[in-house]
Amino acid sequence: MSPGEDVLFWVLAPLMVLVSFGLLVARKAVHVAICMVFVMIGFAVLYIALEAPFLGVVQIVVYTGAVMMLFLFVLMLVGVDASSSLVETIRGQRWIGVILALGLGVILSGVVVQTVFPPAVGLAEANSVTNPVGLARVLMSDYVLAMEVVGIVLITAAVSALVLTHKRRLTPARGQKEIADAKVAALPQGGRLTPLAAPGVYAQNNAMDTPALDPQGRPIAESVSRVLRIRGQQREATDVLLGEHGLVERTSTVAEPEGSAPDEEER
């Protein structure tokens, strides 16, 4: 080990351990993934330091590049910001887990520290034809059957992923015609043919959160986005109208509701 490698290790290793704790404490899965990416890159650097440049590059390409991207994709599929609570549901699991993990770490490290290893040989000889070539020679002679088998495993995995995520259509496809027919059929039960009304537009408000008014001047509740309604972020038409009336009539006194409106919209 050259001094340079020593320095590299002592800088990188504590950082990797520290960041890996993010897996345990980070609330959002995305943050966990970011931690993982850092640790993976750390691994890659260590591989290169360990005279395994080929593996280092593969680590970055395969893990950091492909595998972690796959994780992020899946995270996006299931909802990025669904942060999971850290409250434990199984009784005692937290303590059991912590104790077991600590025990494992201690016992493994203990074994490693106690063992007397033979003096390191180093890979200078094996890597004399450059690491990738040396690796390829081993891979393509002693392990060529394993290579073939692994190839089959990969293909199987790809196909099985297709099969597993394949969604079988249980109902006939719902095209434009079907939707239109359904709307007509639903008319007697109070359905509607026309699209939903757009949110109301007022003199001084961009009114995504405010219902439109029908010809009689009554607010149409459905015109506001469903999400806003569920979140309770819509405003009553009367508030806005009152505000605008007030603006016209008593400019100085009714400034307050108007000031809060842009704030809401920016969120």
Partner: peptide, 18 residues
């Protein structure tokens, strides 16, 4: 040793996260 520690952290993650 570093590999042992990271392995333990990974194991803890499996046990503790839902």
């Amino acid at each position: 040793v570093l590999s042992c520690i990271l392995f333990s952290v990974g194991a803890a993650t499996v046990l503790l996260r839902r």
